[in-house]
Design a protein around this nucleic acid. Structure first.
Lengths: 150, 150
DNA sequence: TATTGTTATACTCTATAACTATA
DNA sequence: TATAGTTATAGAGTATAACAATA
């Protein structure tokens, strides 16, 4: 059904790429983040907005620049994310009295509740996605990932 | 320097997110793919184009739909990627005689050489990035990632 | 009818430069 | 002069719908 010589493999066409650890990491991460996005979507959250909301809930008063740096994103790109959280009523911007250039981000009561709800949904989701790994294996995975030079 | 109560942590603002394996996976993968992109860029390749070129070199005669499925991308989005490879002279499109709807993708001599060159650069790159992991640990990492339910 | 390649379109994420107001 | 937040913009990746040619 093919012009010769053609591939001997119907499946596993990406076998040659599996020698790269980064390729396997990217494929696995894609699957995990896509599923996480599906879980968050009914709650009006995306991965970026959930991450930002979590940092703000965990560290109330955080500045926007600190938030962006913590999440590894550009300051400029954090603005739209924070806008969404603010418009949803989950966080509030407060101009700092000690430095009027800076803005302190604080969660609202509703925001705290939403973060807790989303966190539980994501934990359940990871329990399902990582069902094939024991708790020790999950810790090993995180430990190995943390050893990568950045 | 902060309005009270504010965060007790200057660093580790994302500590609350570290309970999610997916978060660590995403951060690590981001670092790895960004570095891989930097390595490929001087060769006129991106991660997507390198991946497609590799599959075509490894499985000459592959169809566009098969290629897209192998890489987990949409058929429609593979067109632009293959266009770039073709315009660079690294692959050729050949209409199949047995099924004139389908197109067989084959690498050119230049394309094969470019893929080999890029592969070596990426292997060296991974050796550097994963220097903190032993060979056994790298295999463990891949094995653990492969256990994730997709 | 179904499939292959294709075009069009839209949306998210990301990256860079420049502006403003404050320091 | 430097920094915090902001705006504008552009590129890459991704997702869906629809079309022509072919099966």
């Amino acid at each position: 059904m093919n012009d010769l010589p053609d591939s001997p493999f119907a499946a596993g066409l990406d076998a040659g790429l599996r020698e790269f650890v980064g390729y396997t990491m990217k494929r696995a991460t894609s699957a995990v983040t896509a599923d996480a996005a599906r879980v968050l979507e009914p709650m009006g959250l995306r991965i970026t907005t959930f991450s930002a909301l979590s940092v703000i809930c965990h560290s109330p008063g955080v500045r926007q620049t600190e938030l962006a740096a913590a999440l590894g994103m550009e300051r400029s790109n954090s603005v739209a994310v924070i806008d969404k959280l603010e418009k949803a009523g989950w966080i509030a911007r407060e101009r700092k009295s000690t430095d009027r250039r800076a803005i302190a981000l604080r969660p609202t009561t509703v925001g705290l509740a939403r973060q807790k709800q989303a966190r539980l949904a994501l934990l359940a989701h990871e329990d399902r996605l990582f069902a094939g790994l024991t708790a020790a294996e999950r810790r090993d995975l995180v430990k190995l990932l943390s050893k990568i030079e950045v």
